[in-house]
Every structure is written in structure tokens, then in C-alpha cells.
């Protein structure tokens, strides 16, 4: 049975992530203790909320260095992915610095037409912030994290801030601008969308992560 430690950093989606992992048959330990996390087979950092509060909580729990030193597979979800970056515009906070780049606020703009979407355009639409709803992934680089997930797959997003494109980018999505939706740098993985709320595609991504080992 696949084992994973889910970090309890005060995020409101902790329960839904745990239930999603349990539906996949994983053995989930919810913990905020440094020793549990350091010795885990794999680690998930979920998160709903603001970057400054999220980092403050990780400092308070003494987890910042623990996360920086992890060699096991690590997956950040939503805010958890944003915290992997150098810094965030949200609250002007320094983050974990595991992936280069800065998280910035999405700006309302026009919605690009995804080539994967086919046929004629929807009525003229403006993007709105928060970016909330099901959107398509454009896969930029093959990776075991995306095994079995097709270009154009639809997943559920809820966020106002986003990561830029960079060397770690595996898949992008767009809402007025393109942003990194799935990233990987070595053992560090991140997803801006909510796999625990993205039906079969989200379950596949979590299952892919649960099959990774260091």
C-alpha cells in the first residue's frame, strides 16, 4: 500500500485531499511534525489560503528547512505549489525557494482559445479573477506525473495568484495569461489545480504521484 504524509499546515482542503488519497487506497498520515515529514516515503503539502499566512505557519511549525532538505517525492497542491517558489506577490513573502520564480496575481483579460478545444469560438469572453472552474491543461513536457493524462484534459482550478512559465513547467493553463499548472523540478512537484476535486483526471495525477519513490 502506498504511504504518504499529508502536511497539516492549517489549510481548509486538508480533508478533501485526505479523502481523495484514501479513495486511491493510500495509507495517509496527517501530520505537522518535522520527524514524520522527514522520514516519510512521500509528502504532500496542500493549501488553501494566502501565501504569507501559509509561510508563517510553516515557520511556526519548524518545517521550512525540513521541506528544503526533503529528497523524497514532494507534491504541493494549489497554494502548496506556490510556496515551492522563491517568493510571492501575495503579501510580499519569501517562500521555500525550491523552484525559481515569483508568484504573481492574475490580471483580468481576454480568454485565449485553446487549440485543443476544437470548433468555433465561444462568445467573446473576458477572464475573471479568481480563476474558478474547469480549464484545460496544455502539456509541454512528458513526465511520469502526467502519465495517462491527455493534452486538453480538464481540471478544476480556484486561485487568484499563479506561477510563471519556466524550466520546471510540465503543463500550462490560461486565464487572461498563461501560467504553470503542473511543475516538476527533481523530487519537487506542484499542481495549481485541485486534483482532489478534478474527478478522474485528478485521481490519475494523485495515483501517479503515489507510485513515485525516491
Amino acid at each position: 500500500m502506498s504511504k504518504v504524509v499529508l502536511i497539516d499546515a492549517g489549510g481548509a482542503n486538508l480533508g478533501s485531499v485526505r479523502y481523495a488519497l484514501e479513495r486511491l487506497g493510500a495509507q495517509v498520515q496527517v501530520s505537522s511534525r518535522a520527524e514524520d515529514i522527514a522520514s516519510a516515503e512521500r509528502v504532500i503539502l496542500p493549501g488553501v489560503g494566502a501565501a504569507a499566512g501559509g509561510m508563517a505557519r510553516l515557520h511556526e511549525l519548524g518545517l521550512v528547512e525540513v521541506l528544503r532538505d526533503l529528497r523524497q517525492p514532494l507534491l504541493g497542491i494549489c497554494l502548496g505549489m506556490q510556496l515551492l517558489y522563491d517568493s510571492s506577490e501575495e503579501g510580499e513573502v519569501e517562500c521555500l525557494g525550491l523552484i525559481p520564480g515569483r508568484i504573481t496575481k492574475l490580471a483580468p483579460g481576454s480568454l485565449a482559445r485553446s487549440p485543443a478545444a476544437g470548433s468555433a469560438p465561444d462568445t467573446a469572453r473576458r477572464s475573471r479573477v479568481p480563476h474558478m472552474g474547469w480549464n484545460r491543461l496544455q502539456i509541454r513536457r512528458e513526465d511520469p506525473l502526467l502519465a495517462g493524462i491527455d493534452d486538453g484534459a480538464q481540471v478544476y482550478f480556484v486561485h487568484s495568484y499563479a506561477a510563471p512559465l519556466g524550466n520546471a513547467t510540465l503543463a500550462t493553463s490560461e486565464n487572461g495569461q498563461e501560467f504553470s499548472a503542473v511543475v516538476r523540478s527533481g523530487n519537487r512537484h506542484g499542481v495549481q489545480f485541485h486534483p482532489e476535486r478534478s474527478a478522474a483526471i485528478g485521481a490519475r495525477l494523485l495515483a501517479n504521484f503515489l507510485s513515485m519513490s525516491s
Binding site: 480533508g15 479523502y19 478544476y156 482532489e196 476535486r197 474527478a199 485528478g202
Partner: peptide
Amino acid sequence: ARIIDIPFCVAGGIRSVADARAVLHAGAD
């Protein structure tokens, strides 16, 4: 929340931050 893998919202009877926290921690999005 245990069986559903799409987002859901709960409305009605939420009057405070504490009420909202209880519902969100129970698994509502």
C-alpha cells in the same frame, strides 16, 4: 466530501467565521 471528487459548496446557516470553518474543514470547497 468522502465520496465526491468534484467541487461542492454549502449554503444556508453560515453566520460566522467559526460556522464557515466547520463546514470547510468537513470537506466543502
